[in-house]
Design a protein around this nucleic acid. Sequence first.
DNA 1: CTGCCCATGTAAATCGTTACATGATTAC
DNA 2: GTAATCATGTAACGATTTACATGGGCAG
Lengths: 204, 204
Amino acid sequence: MSLRYAILGFLSSTPATGYDIARDFDQAAGSFWHALRSQIYGELKSLEEAGLIRGKIARGDRLRRRVFSLTPAGEAELQGWVEKPNDYPGERDAERIKLMFLDGAPWPVIRRHLQDHAAHHRARFATWKLQHDATGDRTHRQLAGRLSQRPAAEHAKIVFLKQLATEGNMRRAQLEIDWAEDAIARIDAIEASERLPPQRRSAG
Amino acid sequence: MSLRYAILGFLSSTPATGYDIARDFDQAAGSFWHALRSQIYGELKSLEEAGLIRGKIARGDRLRRRVFSLTPAGEAELQGWVEKPNDYPGERDAERIKLMFLDGAPWPVIRRHLQDHAAHHRARFATWKLQHDATGDRTHRQLAGRLSQRPAAEHAKIVFLKQLATEGNMRRAQLEIDWAEDAIARIDAIEASERLPPQRRSAG
DNA sequence: CTGCCCATGTAAATCGTTACATGATTAC
DNA sequence: GTAATCATGTAACGATTTACATGGGCAG
């Protein structure tokens, strides 16, 4: 059900077309909830049928783009949802399964797995950092829209929460990098010791 | 597709019935890939049709339980999969969406959200630690099965990788706890300063 | 007038959850 | 005998991915 609310959240910052949402989702609410165009259009349809959003075609728009915005019911629905305790999904982590069952593979294959992992999270870190910085200096598009419709007294809180979220994700990415690099160092040590002929315990 | 491989991985440690898998999944391969009984039975059926596992009813078993084990094709399929680079799924994190759009809620509601988050991950940490310790002393059931069918020379590697995985998850859980506690402390400070009458900058 | 981006969808298939259905065995 | 647990599934629904389909506007 979360896509529903990710979209409501997006639209609570600024009205947008389905295309806008699909295009910007990965830099805004959707950076925490990935979704594809096809799914977004479907969800918009169902949100409109539920009366939570309304789509209007600006007169004179030749492309007949439908610009969606929240209805009061939609605002209430979003607010009700965010205040409900989160229910955490079960673990689903293919990377860990691969790692565990790589125990029949040679060390270089395992090292590669961990290097890929670190590389992936270095890229993730960079994109979270961009969002974090763009939030700090208020150049972030969605954020700017949100601030513009809220009293100045609330701005600090809005920025604080958004940065709390992005900061947490930066810390997560950094942890994955550190974990993988630690693991690689330990594997280097293991491999080095395996390459030596078996040693006696005494140094005599 | 990963459930398929989580099950293949499970069965690569020990033969089991669908019921066994469903019961023990959360302490074994399934601790990294949550799944329900109904889905497991379905996947077993499809794995058997694909010739990757085989189910046998032990003669004399009144319950006619089907004990599944990997075929050589299944072993090859698993090995091929784990060595392929992982493709990381898009972000899907309802907690972060809630946090961001809690900016219209009072601080106590936000603090509660973060306390719940910390509590959730304290529980997760504890279960990962149990697995990690049970791996270290070889009392972990699935691990014991796996070790018993592999040469002693490989045991250290098998334990190392499993502990690498559980250790990583412990670190993740700890990070979430730290992040939430940091955030709560910052909110405490904000609230304390908000409760004071607006202060002038000079201390005169 | 051609290729690219804007813009909106539908269809089919797969993956995952929730609810339902059934029967055997074991402990009390 | 009856309740709990063992054991195996099916059905319906919802969420997600992949592929397909269509047409307008704009720059060269």
